[in-house]
Amino acid sequence: MPSRIRPLAITAFTATSALGRGRAAHAAALHARRSGLRANDFTPEPLACAIGRVEGLEAAPLPAAYADHDSRNNRLAWMGLAADGFLDAVRECIERHGAGRVALVVGTSTSSIGATEQAYRELDHGRFPPHLQAANLHTPHSLGEFLEAALGTRGPCLTVATACSSSAKIFAKAERLLRLGLADAAVLAGVDTLCGSVLFGFNALELVSPEVCRPFDAARRGLSLGEAAGFALLERDGAADAPRLLGYGESSDAYHMSTPHPEGLGARRALADALARAGLAPREVDYVNLHGTATLKNDAVEAAVVADVFDASTRVSATKGWTGHTLGAAGILESALTLLAMESDLVPGCLNSTVPDPACSASFAFDNESRPIRVALSNSFGFGGNNCTLAFGRAH
């Protein structure tokens, strides 16, 4: 088992999704049980499903200084940076530590692939149109290049692309960078936007629900896709009331390209390692934000893992009924939702779900519950069996 790590302070965090911009909008939606999902109005080709779309991206080009980076994904990143004073927090962090000592670790599944799709749709005599010819739009590191230019960080700059666990794993990478002395602080960013290849690709796998997703419901029919930008600032020390990253666990079971291991071996390993690094026993965990995609196999496997590890004193639920599955941004978005749940001592029940799957144990919350949350976990599981569990705690 891994050794216990020193907790790190989360000195700032924010999220932008279909629920709105910033922490207050997300907290209000959780408390009101108000979903951001709506009928698909994104794809020009018909696809009957629900999506979690962020308003205003089409009408919000990047500032002229960053015109060569203009894409839907980078627009969402810029919009997200403006929420909760996060951009100012990063600049203050750079003043404290120096630009060369602040790392930038980003997680994204599709990056700016939407811009590449658009370029092919608008081919001009076999060439990309001029406004989509910038090479940095057509690379998996597009998000990292843009954010480094916008933020002014000069430390290590890494992109993690491990499907749906991408922006959970950036917490683990940042912890290692700080522990090894390669940086004194890390900006964490997870951004993914809707695009045709993802919507129709998941639909081809028969994983997209024609209605809003219903995590862990007995009659669930699949996932709803969404888009989001999440950011966090990780430092060794912070204010007394700043939440802490207590631990993380990572694994890769490589069982199948798109199906989880039937016994959840990778998920179990990630969970066990997160608890070990945090120095926690399962009974000390108050809440777990599950991956909960509302697909048949993922939810069944994750429910079985929960039943084996936790008793009813630990409450568990999934929040994708609010936001949809935001792919590479899911890890950091759901970490932000978990931190908000801790702030308000609210267990957000599984939204849209009414009849629990028989595999669900007594730990599951389907309605919102008010209860103290001192320690919480967040699960993120990606295609190919790439898994990550994060452990968070109150400062005290």
Results as ranks from 00 to 15, higher is better:
318 A>D: 07
318 A>E: 09
318 A>L: 11
318 A>T: 14
319 T>M: 05
319 T>C: 05
319 T>I: 03
319 T>W: 02
321 G>H: 11
321 G>I: 09
321 G>N: 10
323 T>D: 03
323 T>N: 01
325 H>T: 13
326 T>H: 03
326 T>R: 01
326 T>I: 00
327 L>M: 14
327 L>W: 04
327 L>N: 04
329 A>C: 11
330 A>N: 09
331 G>T: 12
331 G>V: 11
332 I>S: 03
332 I>R: 01
332 I>W: 01
332 I>T: 10
332 I>V: 13
333 L>F: 10
333 L>A: 07
333 L>R: 08
333 L>I: 13
333 L>Y: 12
334 E>L: 00
335 S>M: 12
335 S>T: 14
335 S>E: 01
335 S>F: 02
335 S>K: 04
336 A>E: 01
336 A>Q: 06
337 L>A: 03
337 L>I: 03
337 L>G: 02
337 L>H: 05
338 T>V: 01
338 T>E: 03
338 T>G: 00
340 L>A: 06
340 L>R: 09
340 L>W: 07
341 A>W: 09
341 A>R: 11
342 M>D: 07
342 M>A: 09
342 M>C: 09
342 M>H: 10
342 M>N: 10
343 E>F: 09
344 S>M: 06
344 S>Q: 15
344 S>F: 00
345 D>V: 10
345 D>P: 09
345 D>R: 12
346 L>R: 01
346 L>Q: 04
346 L>Y: 02
347 V>K: 02
347 V>C: 05
349 G>Y: 07
350 C>W: 00
350 C>H: 00
350 C>E: 00
351 L>C: 02
351 L>E: 05
352 N>W: 06
353 S>E: 04
353 S>D: 04
355 V>D: 09
355 V>Y: 00
355 V>C: 07
356 P>E: 02
356 P>V: 02
357 D>G: 01
357 D>P: 00
357 D>H: 15
358 P>K: 00
358 P>T: 03
359 A>V: 09
359 A>Y: 06
360 C>N: 13
360 C>A: 13
360 C>Q: 10
361 S>M: 08
362 A>D: 14
363 S>C: 15
363 S>N: 14
363 S>L: 09
364 F>V: 05
365 A>C: 14
365 A>R: 14
366 F>G: 07
366 F>S: 08
367 D>K: 15
370 S>L: 14
370 S>Y: 13
370 S>M: 12
371 R>S: 05
372 P>K: 12
372 P>E: 11
372 P>L: 12
